[in-house]
Design a protein around this nucleic acid. Structure first.
Lengths: 123, 123, 123, 123
DNA sequence: GTGGTCTAGACCACA
DNA sequence: GTGGTCTAGACCACA
């Protein structure tokens, strides 16, 4: 079973990147854990090694991995990636709330609509 | 002066589409108002008429415009488009809050971080 | 005539990246000027379009270019890239002076040796 | 504890080479002192003996070591290596200053920026 | 075996 | 025509 969605408009390398970002941020993959080798993962996903390579290169650039020539790719530790992801999510959140407000939709109602329930007791 | 941003990674036709969606949802353009002609808008934006045409086709497909043979394109009225946009925003919002929760970020904190202030008085 | 050096241990895409970084930083290429197309440059350097593509992607990531789908790649303006380069050079410089000091070489002498002449008059 | 940094992008053999070059240039290791055996060092660094061998071969090629069949590897004396290193550093220094000048950065300012303070008293 | 680079060539989105 | 993605396959450096 492969978790790549060929119907998805996002390119394959991006789906791979995204998937592993989540696994690392969730802590499913721990620091210094070895990633599947480029070739092995390519076979598993029945895609091309170059495509996996591109995903790994991207993950390395974004600080999620480090690669050791001749040995493999490994998960990088550190809290940087969490802070970075947090900032990204906050940014996207702000953009949506702003977009709603711009066209006359009450952000509070929107939040309610999407199942968000504010705890009004404490704080 | 054109409001198209060539440095934007989004294709031009999408920027046009997005722009007009906002203008219509905000009510700047009212139902049955005539849109600028494809050629005129293309000249104004110094872009290709094909590109404007594509944007208009997309807007029509999404229910924002209707076109009258030989006369031009007009803004479609109705509450459908508002409901539709609202659903889209709610969906994106839910996705982000879920994404945050998944990796152990408290949605409430994220909302606070992006400047969201819950009004605890009414409601 | 191609300025790529196949004897150079650095990969081709990096030589291309480096070359254009200098041209942009020197101001030989001005903001919003169009870069040669991927295919054309590939032919000119008798290398593969993919290799040029990789160089352009890297330049874009580093803020030297922006690319417009269907139109081409363009030089990005701004002072960021200068500040960034300056910081990079300062860092490399500090590293060398430190390295010299560590093994008992007087940095001042080293500077003299490499043709550097301090102006002792003013300042 | 090993001083090899697996997160370093440089290959392991190069890190070993670099390390010993510094130790020899600093005089921590003196001429004719015996180097650790390939196997012992490999075990100490928990790396492959081939990797250590490669580092030693490189050090020998660059004139930092000499090997005696059946006895081991020894530090080579002489001022050559210092002169050589000095020339290398001077070269890299000149390259950076030139690079700065090329793109309109004043070398003197760059030196100041990286903490270099010219002593105007003597000389 | 492992990653990194490169070539040749295809196909798609966009202008 | 222009960039972006992907495949198939080669070759090299490194452990």
């Amino acid at each position: 079973m492969t978790w790549i969605n060929y119907q998805d408009s996002r390119p394959i390398y991006e789906q791979i990147t995204e998937r592993y970002k989540v696994l690392i941020l969730k802590g499913v993959l721990v620091p210094d854990e070895q990633m599947p080798s480029v070739r092995k993962l390519a076979m598993e996903l029945s895609t091309n090694p170059n495509t996996v390579q591109r995903a790994y290169t991207e993950l390395e650039r974004q600080g999620f991995l480090y690669s050791v020539r001749g040995r493999g790719n490994f998960v990088r530790g550190g809290t940087d990636i969490h802070a970075q992801k947090r900032a990204e999510l906050a940014g996207r959140l702000a953009a949506i709330l702003k977009e709603a407000e711009d066209i006359g939709i009450d952000p509070a109602q929107l939040l309610a609509e999407c199942g968000w329930k504010e705890n009004t007791e404490n704080d």
